[in-house]
Amino acid sequence: MGGVMTTEEQSERINLIPIYIMGKQYMVPESLTIMKAMEYAGYTLIRGVGCRGGFCGACGTAYRVLGDPKLYFGLACQTVVQPGMYLAQLPFFPARRAAYHLEDLEATSTQLFSLYPELLRCLGCGACTKACPQELDVRSYMAAGMRGDIAKMADMSFDCIMCGLCAARCPAEEGQYNIAILARRLYGRYMAPRSAHLAERLEEIRAGQFDATMEELKGLDENALKERYKARDIEPK
């Protein structure tokens, strides 16, 4: 990667701006994400860091910007710093998770309500939706859950990364992301249509249909394998 400037080399050409980590001011390059800005400030992160790519939900962050009354939320690895940003990391927020064994459940609204009776206490205020860094409509998927519409709840919550910011903001003390994963697992196991072709393939393998070919392939030398490989027909797009 010759010729690529490091973050620090660039910073010499880039404006430094003030941000406040838990109230303490640091000057950081304006192009950095919150996570990289904290490292620039000298932090070695243990909490509040995970995949660094927006998938794991470890780096939920609440912030305000100087002079702006609004409270904002984002993922530290995906949000670029702004001047006057006051940051609070929320790497963990407790939420109740019901005890269950999926194989003993039924995909019914009664089931959902019995495991998570607090679902019915949702106020519909939408604080969760405002906090979601994935921009999911959390309020609406909770509403779907209250109607017992498990499929809708599963579909609408699918991109959830379980960071917990919704639960942190909820005046009704819901653990939305835990309820949502139950809905998705109920849907996946009990409601999604099953694949006939998958079941057939399992039967064929159990019956030993591919055993002989597999043994033959395992015994081929490299040249013979190369010939087979080159002779493969490619399924069209």
């Binding site: 998705r184 196991r189 999604a192 249509p193 099953r194 072709h197 998958l198």
Partner: peptide, 16 residues
């Protein structure tokens, strides 16, 4: 994974 409740992308008839 299906039995554990994973949601694969499927056609309406269940075809993957």
């Amino acid at each position: 994974l299906e039995d554990l409740g994973m949601m694969f992308d499927k056609e309406p008839d269940g075809t993957m």
